[in-house]
Amino acid sequence: MADNKEREHSEIEVAEFHKKIKEAFEVFDHELNNTVDVREIGTIVRSLGCCPSEGELHHLIAEVEEEEPTGYIRFEKFLPVMTNVLLERRYRPIPEDILLRAFEVLDPLKRGFLSKEELIKYMTEEGEPFSQEEMEEMLSAAIDPESNTIHYKDYVTMMVIDENETL
């Protein structure tokens, strides 16, 4: 009995995931032929509430790509892989407190802020560096123009998106 119910539950869940994945995919399927540009996969995966690193994303793309990469990803390939990602709750979103702690690590003196230059240095030279566009976009919302600093606690509070909005 319980088993049945569980299975039923997960079937509903899978069906829901399928619909969400299809819709996210279709936003980027410009020609309505069930393919998207491989460069959009990151955006699609992330728009589904996942938070993979660039490295993890690379692996995921390798899984859904054709044997001879065409630059496009087919929906049939993407759907099962992505459904599993969602079912296994992989690449979970980063909670607010972890994010805040990350900023604190970059601020060993515990001033409560990073200067614009510090932020740029970390984000473009360490880890999986931001592109110029990503950096500019982050700065436009993060930096207080008067002090030229980012008060990360306020920033994090402001930016954290309600989980329910996407999942």
């Binding site: 938070c51 690193s53 660039e54 990350a102 690590v105 984000m123 998106i161």
Partner: peptide
């Protein structure tokens, strides 16, 4: 590690 967290988080925010 901290940088990676912030970058991954921001990329998701931006993607949405």
């Amino acid at each position: 590690a901290a940088t990676l967290v912030i970058q991954s988080w921001y990329r998701r925010y931006r993607a949405q």
